[in-house]
């Protein structure tokens, strides 16, 4: 049986991004969830015309628990900005950015799917990577590496193994009986 336990966290840092001055070429800003939409609008007006990516990180030992990370790009001045937005662990919510950039659509759906963070005002917020009936949010740190065993999605009945029977040798039978036997094996309901 595969283990359902995650390996222990090996590091000690609770808030890694806060520990170190920026080491890449992006300007970093920390924004409160209430101000994120106005800040994004402002940055877009100032020439950051591309929302390159939208990701999230889960820090279960920290308050706020989640970081939603916006990567913005200014094409004209070739500058990057990274916005980090901390979110509380219970019922995490953010306003959507789909009204500013269409590209935020799938990125926000992915965060909703894998982290359980809701984006208010998103036109079509549903799971994108996991099946629609999946339970839990796999990229959260408290979600095990191997999820619980789960019943398979229903398959059409003819594919089930129990429907396929090994035929007995046809010696001493009429042709009609043989045809019925074959039809039964194929899963057609001819036996009644």
């Amino acid at each position: 049986m595969p283990s359902t336990q995650t390996p222990p966290l090996t590091g000690t840092a609770i808030d890694p991004p806060a520990l170190r001055p920026p080491i890449d070429d992006a300007a970093i800003e920390r924004i409160e969830p209430a101000n994120i939409h106005s800040r994004l609008t402002e940055l877009k007006r100032d020439g950051f015309t591309m929302l390159l990516d939208l990701g999230a990180v889960d820090y279960p030992q920290r308050t706020p628990r989640f970081d939603v990370v916006y990567h913005l790009l200014n094409l004209r001045q070739t500058k990057r900005v990274r916005l980090l937005c901390g979110l509380a662990g219970d019922d995490p919510k953010l306003p959507t950015a789909t009204d500013l950039w269409k590209s935020a659509d799938w990125a926000e759906r992915e965060i909703f799917d894998l982290f359980g963070i809701t984006f208010e005002g998103h036109p079509d917020l549903r799971r994108i990577q996991m099946p629609n009936d999946w339970e839990g949010h796999p990229l959260r740190k408290d979600y095990p590496l191997r999820g619980p065993a789960r019943e398979r999605s229903p398959r059409p009945a003819f594919a089930l193994k129990s429907n396929v029977q090994a035929g007995t040798p046809p010696s001493g039978r009429t042709l009609e009986a043989l045809q019925r036997q074959i039809a039964k094996i194929r899963g057609e309901d001819a036996s009644k």
Binding site: P7, L9, T10, G11, T12, A13, I14, P16, P17, L52, D53, G55, A56, V57, D58, V69, H71
Partner: peptide
Amino acid sequence: YVVSDGGNRPYRVRTR
């Protein structure tokens, strides 16, 4: 976007 917490495994690897 890679986050390390100081350990021997990546804390988070987000691909764009």
